[in-house]
């Protein structure tokens, strides 16, 4: 009890100004990229500064942090996915490759947060659907190691896609898709996802539905 109280008193209040989005791709017109744009608009009009880490980016260069291995189409990530899905047992080489890229991505996350002095991160679907296992695992370890305030925005889950049902990575899925850590607040896009996240993982969450374009609020 004394140890817990000491830990609580040592915790510093977070003064949040700089916010870092993290995803596999933040570019083009896919749903996740569009939603990031809307969230960033809302944040910036409330005087927060937004930054972006992904494997593909079309945001302002001075706010961007490109990490090629974060992309789900990176050849090494595609190879890992091929080795993990559609079979029930994993090769040792696949575990090694996954861990190696995970460590590299975790290093990149530390560099990103340091470079832009980021106070809060928003992983966009990267901790929900396993398009990039090493990225999700790196994020989970990074959050566990730093305790950084995190809003995990979830658009899809692995259990919604039949192609993920037969796999050799239940341990990875349970670790990172989604993770359950004290500094993460979970946001989903509809009430069905909310119920499923609570039912399957016991994780409480908040529903924030996708937005209509900006014109709606100006009418």
């Amino acid at each position: 009890m004394k140890r817990i109280m000491t830990m609580l008193t040592q915790q510093q209040p977070h003064h949040i100004k700089n916010i870092g989005f993290i995803s596999t791709r933040i570019a083009g017109t896919d749903g996740v990229s569009l939603e990031i744009q809307k969230w960033a608009e809302v944040l910036e009009r409330n005087r927060y500064h937004c930054f972006y880490l992904a494997g593909e980016l079309d945001r302002a260069e001075e706010k961007s942090f490109l990490v090629e291995e974060a992309h789900f189409e990176h050849p090494l990530i595609q190879q890992i996915n091929n080795d993990l899905f559609g079979r029930g047992q994993r090769k040792g080489e696949t575990s090694e490759a996954t861990q190696k890229i995970k460590d590299k991505l975790k290093g990149a996350l530390y560099g990103y947060v340091k470079k832009f002095d980021i106070h809060l991160i928003i992983p966009e679907n990267a901790l929900s659907i396993p398009m990039n296992f090493p990225l999700g695992m790196a994020l989970t370890e990074f959050i566990a190691e730093t305790g950084i305030p995190t809003i995990a925005h979830r658009h899809d889950f692995s259990w919604e896609r039949p192609r993920f049902l037969i796999n050799a990575c239940v341990d990875y899925l349970n670790m990172a898709f989604p993770p359950y850590l004290p500094s993460i607040k979970h946001v989903v896009i509809n009430s069905i996802a909310s119920e499923q996240l609570s039912f399957k993982r016991g994780i409480s969450n908040l529903v924030m539905m996708h937005l209509f374009p900006q014109g709606l609020s100006n009418r």
Binding site: P13, H14, H15, I16, I19, K38, W39, E41, V42, L43, R45, N46, Y48, L120, P149, I151, K185, V187, L206, M208, M209, H210, L211, F212, Q214, L216, S217, R219
Partner: peptide, 30 residues
């Protein structure tokens, strides 16, 4: 009907709705 749908969308899917929830969520960390 169009006006009815617009009012529903404004109530549940506008930037102001997101703003209220998201800023509150961020401030809960502070």
């Amino acid at each position: 009907m169009v006006e009815h749908n617009y009012q529903i969308a404004k109530r549940y899917f506008s930037y102001e709705v997101l703003e209220e929830k998201l800023i509150h969520l961020i401030r809960a960390f502070e």
